[in-house]
Simulated scan of single mutants.
Amino acid sequence: MTSFTDIVWDDTVLPFQLDRADVRGRIARLDGVLEDVLRQHDYPALVEGLVAEVALLTALIGQTMKLRWKLSLQVRGKGPVRILATDYYAPAEEGAPARLRAWASYDAERLNENAADPFAEIGEGYLAVLIDQGEGTLPYQGMTPLDGGSLAHCAETYFAQSEQLPTRFQLAFGRSTEPGQGEHWRAGGVMLQMMPASPVAAREGSGEGGLLRHSDILSGAADEDWTRANVLLDTVEEMELTGPSVGLTNLLVRLFNEEEPRIFDAQKVEFGCTCSEDRVRTSLSIYSAKDIRHMTTAEGTVTADCQFCGAHYVFDPLSLGFEAVKNPDGSPKEADDA
């Protein structure tokens, strides 16, 4: 367990439990990792905000992933903002940082950069949650429609519908100016969730389209505990969430002191991309020589760009696909290797 001591909380997720309310949760604050995610691209401010929101959600949800698991969130819509995608790589070993990456695809001609409601720029669509537990397992995928006015509300609906766990997110993000530093992105948030052992009162949803709400799941003392924890969370201010003047442990005590908060080991998060030349070659290994020729540019090369980190790869087309006649280093393939 982590003690209530002074810790540098930027790019950190702190898990906790409210023993009196039978509620668990996480507090996260992203600073440098969010800057690293966004500096890879020249997004409009509206798109940057949506990327910041989905990255923060991913960090809060991803903290529960076991070692070497991967969590992905994908938001796909029919509006100008077509795709928001994130990957959270759980630590490879105890004590190591988790890695986070994110990107967005949007139609610049259709995008209203001054829209009062950024969420509306995504339009009709869905939020998908994917969990990859590693080699030899089948990835899990759950989906929920986009509604409720925010990505945070969509994530709450996902947990209520897919896992029947009442869940609440309170997020804040934006550009910050601090003494001695230039303007940069910061984000902070709290996630509350009832413990899985809480009693289930109903299976039929009273929300739009039959979706579950927390009132469909909880009853009696559990409902009272959940309501009380949410009332306390409603008192949090945006500046408290994003920091940096208020530490996460101090914020936890201010919000939930009467609920007997208990904290656990904090998880550091850093920007990390898994793209590589070998991975791109592997993804192209299923294509024939004819397919590769269709991918070849006028300059006689095949190129690939990583959407997450912006890495640019250039290949000799004769070294790609299952009919390749050259090795990656340019040497001829031996007959036994072809």
Rank of each mutant, 00 (worst) to 15 (best):
M1L: 09
M1W: 05
T2K: 06
F4E: 12
T5N: 13
T12E: 06
V13G: 03
V13I: 12
D19P: 02
R20T: 11
A21K: 07
V23E: 08
I27V: 15
I27C: 07
A28S: 14
L30S: 08
L30A: 10
G32C: 01
V37F: 04
V37T: 06
V37W: 02
R39L: 08
Y43G: 00
A45L: 14
A45Q: 14
E48G: 01
E48W: 07
L50Y: 01
A52R: 00
V54F: 03
A55Q: 00
L57Y: 00
L60F: 10
I61L: 14
G62M: 05
T64Y: 07
L71V: 00
K78I: 09
K78C: 08
I83G: 01
P91F: 11
R101V: 02
A102T: 10
W103F: 15
Y106N: 03
A108P: 04
D117T: 08
I122H: 00
E124T: 15
V129P: 00
V129T: 05
G134N: 10
E135I: 15
T137Q: 04
L138Q: 14
Y140I: 13
G148A: 09
G148R: 13
S150Y: 00
L151E: 04
A152C: 07
C154P: 03
E156P: 03
T157H: 09
A160D: 07
S162E: 02
S162N: 14
F169Y: 15
L171M: 09
R175Q: 14
G180P: 01
Q181D: 08
E183F: 06
E183K: 12
V190F: 03
V190H: 05
M191V: 08
Q193M: 11
M194H: 09
E204H: 12
G205M: 11
L211R: 14
L211G: 01
L212C: 04
L212M: 11
H214P: 02
H214K: 06
S215Y: 07
I217Y: 02
G220V: 04
W226S: 01
V236P: 05
E237L: 11
T242I: 11
G243C: 03
G247V: 01
L248E: 09
L248N: 13
N250K: 07
E258C: 05
E260Y: 06
P261M: 02
R262I: 05
R262N: 10
V269Y: 00
E270H: 07
D278R: 15
V280R: 06
R281T: 10
S285C: 06
I286D: 04
S288H: 06
T297S: 15
T297N: 04
T301S: 08
T301W: 04
T303E: 15
Q307I: 05
H312F: 12
Y313H: 02
G321A: 06
G321L: 01
F322R: 13
E323V: 07
A324W: 00
V325Q: 14
G330V: 13
S331F: 11
P332Q: 10
K333N: 09
K333I: 00
D336H: 13
D336T: 13
